[in-house]
Design a binder for these strands. Structure first.
Length: 284
DNA sequence: ATGGTGGCCCGGCCA
């Protein structure tokens, strides 16, 4: 089961690149963020032609999230169900191939003094409550998306550059860690410990080519699922070329025939997964 | 260079 997440920065502008990417990456489930579309504008037909069902939650100009799946798409739910939902078009979830999949677009926060920063922390806390209220850590759950938080110093190109800025602050990282405390694992990071592995690069100043990026797009999974993660990739090829998003897509492969099997018992916790590959791109 | 790029949609916001 290949589960992917991609902040596309307008699906209207990015549809050709997304169709191209699905064609060669062949995700089973693709979580999208920042479609910037209303539900009525979402291109369900384009995905259907590729063999995928899709569900979208957006109101037009900002945000907008979707799940695209070729392994089933049932029990679709939208929003946080919380006063902290804000604009309300930052979360959608569905059952896909036996996994509860969430596509999330965490608020940016703007700056540490901005009211949007407090709203970001409240949003992450509400996400934790939603998970705790609607699922169990022993379920198969994947929470994928643009978290707008770099979990650790190795997830940014130069931690000194980010002093006093969002995405790396203690409270943001603590809010992310609270999700992990509930029972989620950063699956990509668990497979690949190297520094210099980023998923977002500013459009400005040639940041991509100078490797000035951050890893803020994550595939979090409950332990029963994380234990069968076998391979992951940040596809930097999708950040190159014509009209790229400023984010690269990220995918993780899960060996579903190993769920609950010999490769790991449910709830076995840290230490049960070995990194088996080193195929991700890294800085030269 | 008080900038830069790109998307929304057409002056300014947002990332």
């Amino acid at each position: 089961m290949r589960i992917a997440t991609w902040n596309v920065n307008s699906l209207t502008a990015r549809l050709p690149r997304v169709v191209e990417w699905i064609g060669y990456a062949q995700p089973d489930v693709l979580c999208l963020q920042e479609t910037k579309q209303a539900d009525s504008a979402f291109p369900h037909g384009a995905f259907e032609q590729l063999g995928y069902e899709s569900a979208h939650h957006g109101d037009g100009r900002w945000n907008g999230v979707a799940i695209v799946s070729r392994v089933g798409l049932d029990q679709v739910s939208t929003g946080l169900g919380s006063p902290h939902d804000g604009e309300g078009t930052r979360l959608i979830s569905a059952d896909c191939g036996g996994i509860r999949v969430f596509s999330v677009y965490v608020p940016n926060g703007r700056s540490l003094e901005d009211e949007h920063y407090a709203a970001k922390l409240a949003w992450l806390a509400a996400l934790r409550r939603l998970l705790a209220d609607s699922a169990s850590p022993s379920d198969l759950v994947a929470v994928c998306g643009d978290f707008n938080v770099a979990p650790e110093d190795r997830d940014v190109w130069d931690i000194g550059h980010f002093d006093g800025m969002t995405h790396v602050s203690g409270p943001e990282r603590a809010a992310l860690a609270a999700l992990e405390d509930w029972g989620l694992v950063d699956t990509f990071r668990r497979l690949y410990p190297q520094e210099g592995l980023f998923s977002w690069w500013d459009y400005r100043g040639g940041a991509f080519h100078q490797h000035r990026g951050m890893r803020i797009d994550l595939v979090l999974a409950t332990w029963p699922l994380a234990e069968v993660a076998r391979y992951a990739l940040i596809d930097r090829a999708a950040r190159r070329g014509e009209k790229p998003s400023d984010h690269a897509p990220v995918f993780v492969d899960f060996a579903m025939d190993g769920v609950g099997g010999a490769s790991g018992r449910i709830g076995s916790g840290p230490g049960s997964v070995e990194a088996r590959h080193s195929g991700t791109e890294r800085r030269p």
